[in-house]
């Protein structure tokens, strides 16, 4: 890959923006209850049918928008984790950070009524959960972050198992298990769209991106190891702190609205890195656009699949992501491991 130029950055951004527009278009026009023609009419406010207008503007558009926000957050968080931990297999879901966020959210739902806080406060609670899980991960990885990929992934497995158990434990005390809501959250789904929560996601994503994008070049160097980055003039501690905050914001917000949608942060940055190269100045905006398009497409697919009942979107991403992860694992194991910093 030749070094990044502003022209190449502009071209790749334009292509991914076009992809996102196509995905959003498909997401708005396709789905149950409305034919694409009816949806188009409702979108132009040319539909005489009040129910069609309601479905499109109150249900479908917010859902498509939320899928885009969640997809962008997860993909960017994945790319940031991979740079921070110098591990191409890192992903918020695999590392248990999403699990921590979910636990934070459930804990709030359980304790909230006693404290007088409503479900609208779930995103900040998820943010706190994500931050704590990530802190635990970094503490285990040690100051140099030199944890073997196997140990890192195992830590994620354990964090996830612990979070799931704690979630079920909390939920069984509070009646959240009924109606399958907790199940939908654990598998990841965007069926319920609440305006108050959606605003949080948009704000958290914007804050997270605002923190992370200016760090793009520093992230390039951080991927060489903290010492090398510091020797090139990078303030590594400040950058790690900013990354901690921004990834926790993005993961916390997306888990709060969509639950544990897995593997988006693995699949999207990896495919983009193959296509565009590893430069984070290009990879981060590309992950935001590509992640948004990816989850909108997945969500559109689960809405239009002729299943008996609507499939949760997390089931689809995990169905695609599981084999993808194994392929990546095998591929990186065959690589020259001595090139890697562990």
């Amino acid at each position: 890959m030749t070094p990044l130029t502003p022209g190449r950055l502009a071209r790749s951004t334009a292509w991914l923006l076009a992809l996102l527009v196509l995905a959003l278009g498909a997401g708005v026009l396709l789905g149950p209850a409305l034919s694409p023609a009816e949806a188009w009419d409702a979108l132009r406010l040319a539909s005489p049918d009040a129910a069609a207008l309601d479905i499109l503007w109150r249900v479908r558009l917010p859902r498509v928008g939320l899928a885009a926000l969640v997809g962008a957050s997860l993909a960017v968080a994945g790319a940031l984790f991979q740079a921070l931990l110098r591990n191409p297999l890192a992903d918020p879901f695999i590392l248990g950070v999403s699990g921590g966020a979910a636990l934070g959210g459930v804990a709030l739902l359980v304790l909230g009524p006693a404290l007088g806080v409503g479900a609208g406060a779930v995103p900040p609670a998820s943010f706190a959960g994500a931050g704590l899980a990530l802190l635990a991960l970094l503490a285990i990885a040690g100051p140099q972050g030199r944890l073997s990929p196997a140990a890192l992934l195992l830590t994620g497995v354990v964090l996830n198992a612990f979070a799931s158990a704690a979630i079920v434990f909390c939920a069984s005390f509070s009646g959240l298990v009924e109606g399958g809501r907790i199940f939908l959250w654990l598998i990841g789904s965007i069926t319920e769209v609440r305006a108050d929560v959606a605003i949080w996601v948009a704000v958290f994503l914007a804050l997270g991106l605002a923190c992370a994008l200016p760090l793009a070049r520093a992230l390039n160097l951080l991927a060489l190891g903290e010492e090398s980055a510091a020797a090139l003039g990078i303030e590594t501690r400040r950058i790690k702190l900013l990354l901690l905050v921004s990834t926790s914001l993005m993961v916390g917000a997306s888990v709060a609205v969509a639950g544990l949608v897995g593997f988006v942060g693995l699949i999207v940055p990896h495919l983009l890195r193959l296509l565009l190269g590893p430069d984070h100045r290009q990879l981060l905006p590309a992950a935001a656009l590509g992640g948004a398009a990816f989850l909108v497409i997945c969500d559109t697919a689960v809405r239009t699949l002729p299943a008996g009942r609507e499939l949760p979107v997390g089931a689809l991403t995990a169905l695609a992501g599981g084999p993808f992860f194994l392929w990546l694992l095998r591929r990186s194991a065959r690589r020259n491991w001595s090139a890697l910093p562990w």
């Binding site: 991927a223 190891g225 090398s228 890195r273 090139a339």
Partner: peptide, 11 residues
């Protein structure tokens, strides 16, 4: 020297 991503030598 530690590298986790496929940078080109020029990069």
């Amino acid at each position: 020297a530690a590298f986790a991503f496929p940078w080109s030598l020029l990069e």
